[in-house]
Amino acid sequence: MVDRTFAIARLPGFATIAVTVFVLLYLPIAMLVVFSFNAGDSVAIWEGFSFRWYPEAWSNEAVKAATWRSLQIATAASIIATTVATMAALGTTRRRQTKGQSFVYLMINQPLMVPEIVTAVALLIFFSTIKVATGYQGLGYLIIAHAAFCTPFAYLPIRARLESMDLSLETASADLYASRWQTFRYITLPLVMPGAIAGLMLAFVTSLDDVVITLFVKSAGQDTLPTYMLAQIRRSVSAEVNAISTLLLLLTVVLLTAFFLLTRKRT
């Protein structure tokens, strides 16, 4: 009997295309990792295995400062983004559905859709007015900017979690004498926590990796790790950058694995 069901995996060339795509996606990254262990100065000619770039990068004061700044910004921004996203998710899932609901979703997710360069220019102009008016030059601008574009990344897993939650649990809590705040504190919050942690990690990774908005918003001497690396590469391509990239990659893989484990359906 002929099987008439359509399966894309049976089309001719499927395996070839799939393998090609994965190679193109991951080969450059694999090369970056390999060359971070290069003994020589070149990023293109292999001269033997060595760990030298890792301690070299770590002994560089500029790298340390940029790393510390990146972590500070990512931590603060992801906490703010997760808090805002949790409130937004509660607002969009725990109220009666209104006509403007899809407009609200659009507004919350707009940083995903508006070209990043537009947000960057807008923030540059907006913040420079404030800088002139207040004289404040600190990291606050970067934190606020990062929190803004990280919010939709935190929002999506939290909303998914809240939507899959049985509403009768909150009804039952109210029935058992819990005030609205107690219901949130003892029922909703603990149950939404895996989603919130997943959102926090996504926001953290997104912030850590940002270049465009950071370049526009940062003041002099406020390089984050990605903008520092960009500046380094402009001058001369150093294998030090490979080592830093590899470490960033490792951090991202760890966080995303944790994200995957947290959002996976528990059976």
Partner: peptide, 27 residues
Amino acid sequence: PNERPVNTVFQSYALFPHLSVADNIGF
């Protein structure tokens, strides 16, 4: 509802999944 001395047994039970049996009963 939280001010009424009336309690409900729900059709879906609506037990709090993150709390133990004892904590559910004591809630």
